[in-house]
Design a protein around this nucleic acid. Structure first.
Length: 424
RNA sequence: GGAGGUGUCGCCUAGUGGCCUAUGGCGCCCGCCUGCUAAGCGGGUUGAGGGUUACCCCCUCUCGCGGGUUCAAAUCCCGCCACCUCCGCCA
């Protein structure tokens, strides 16, 4: 949720922010009108309620005829209070619904425009070249006995897969290595629940237009999360954290579930786009002032990770129109995928400023008269397993179908330096 | 799933219809005192919203959540949720 003061004090900034994302500003006008209605409803209710309380105090002291007269008066007043109260509740709800529809204004520095208007900040490493015809990850996965897509489809349907043999080893190795990096960087390791209540989903901004992509459990008020950002953000919901304990950093390993609605026909081959995958996600709670620096720091963690895997990648600054509802700025790290001849997103880090914190009531207590303020939340991928496996297999493949293991990963793969094709 | 119990401010706690405008302690903040430290003394300390706005100030809501009874609810009634104990089931 945006800062309500912004709506009151500088609505034109919100209108400009909507334009930068390529959205209509109508919702800003609606929210302003709803705010007016809400405030007059509050004034009316409080006037009546104050009168009622005053009479109540007199009644407790009065006796006899005087008391009876007061009682008669308050009977009608009680009904008026009730009406005014429900009118106020209605106006509050309508106002809040308007506010919830307004996305986080993009950062000043974020590029304007849509999906294709990103800015490339940096290219790291050299895209791999081969003196043989490179195989794609599907073929490599089959040769190594690492990925079984056919049986994934047989058992669970399209966009499902098994990681088998060395493929399963690879996941465990990547997860352990990522968790080691996170722990060393000061993150608290977490294994969160991946079924969550609507509050957590809505609070992180995944129930608006994004709801189509979310699995809901039939007959229960629960959702399968598409990222552990959701349970990590909701972890401190309704809490007031001591500002001296900031930043709080968590790194979670969890499965992620995505319907991938609206992506029919996209990435149908292989495991680039799947309904389920495992991921290690970084999450930070900090102050608004520190959030930009924290964002860069998270990006640094992602880059250090990709460097260790010896991948070629670029960093892009996502345009405003391609930001999620909650994000104020987003950097993606995209790795070079040789057989696709282009960069594909491997990690993504977003600064959600106080947007999620306001929805989830996550606040900090600050000294020196600052008092209680909403915190900033940030998230970033450390490793999303399938796409990372794709990048590793395709980048480090050799002519015979074997795959070189980056040296940093070798200790996590029982010291193997090369993954060899299996027979049969 | 069944039976019983509990839910009050960051933590513990008093409070069985009306000066509850919620008690006390711990912790925390400010000040005083004190060679240092500790102790002691005094004051402050739930959060949200509205009016007014430089500040002060005033008002409303907030006792797990939501309804109800009543002129009036932390307090009485109903439903839900969470936790604890026991039983059942189960990796």
């Amino acid at each position: 949720m945006i800062d309500p003061r912004l709506l009151r004090d500088d609505p034109d900034r919100l209108r400009a922010a909507q334009a930068k994302r390529g959205l209509s500003a109508d919702v800003v006008d609606e929210a302003q009108a709803a705010d007016e209605r809400r405030r007059s409803a509050i004034v009316e209710f409080e006037r009546l309620r104050g009168e009622q309380k005053g009479l109540g105090r007199q009644i407790s002291r009065a006796t006899g005829e005087e008391r009876q007269a007061l009682l008669d008066r308050t009977k009608t007043l009680a009904a008026e209070v009730r009406t005014a109260e429900s009118a106020q509740a209605e106006a509050e709800a309508a106002y809040r619904a308007c506010l919830m529809r307004i996305p986080n204004p993009a950062a000043e520095a974020a590029p304007a425009g849509g999906e294709d208007d990103y800015v490339v900040l940096e290219e790291v490493g050299t895209p791999a070249t081969f003196d043989f015809e490179p195989r794609d990850h599907v073929e490599l996965g089959r040769m190594l006995g690492a990925i079984d897509i056919d049986r994934g489809a047989k058992v669970s349907g399209a966009r499902f897969y098994y990681l088998t043999g060395v493929g399963a080893d690879l996941e465990l190795a990547l997860v352990t290595m990522a968790m080691d990096q996170a722990r060393a960087a000061g993150f608290t390791p977490m294994i969160p629940p991946t079924l969550v209540k609507p509050r957590a989903m809505e609070g992180t901004g995944f129930l608006g237009q994004a709801a189509d992509d979310v699995y809901r459990v039939e007959g229960e008020d629960l959702y399968l999360v598409g990222t552990s950002e959701v349970p990590l953000a909701a972890y401190h919901s309704d809490e007031i954290l001591d500002a001296r304990t900031l930043p709080r950093r968590y790194a979670a390993f969890s499965p992620c579930f995505r319907k991938e609605a609206g992506s029919y026909g996209k990435d149908t081959r292989g495991i680039i786009r799947v309904h389920w995958f495992d991921k290690v996600e970084m999450f930070s709670y900090t102050t608004l002032e520190e959030s930009e620096a924290e964002h860069q720091w998270l990006l640094g963690q992602e880059r250090a990770w990709l460097d260790k895997l010896e991948l070629a990648y670029r960093v892009i600054d996502t345009a405003a129109g391609d930001l999620g509802l909650s994000a104020q700025r987003k950097f993606d790290c995209e790795a070079w995928i040789p057989t696709q001849g282009r960069y594909r997103e491997l990690t993504s880090t977003s600064n959600c400023t106080d947007f999620q914190a306001r929805r989830l009531d996550i606040r900090g207590r600050f000294p020196d008269g600052v008092g209680v303020q909403p915190l900033a939340t940030l998230n970033g991928t450390l490793v999303a397993i399938p796409r990372t496996i794709v990048a590793i297999l395709e980048t480090h493949q050799q002519a015979d179908g074997s795959v070189r293991v980056p040296s940093a990963l070798q200790p996590y793969l029982q010291g193997r330096e090369v993954l060899e094709p299996v027979v049969g």
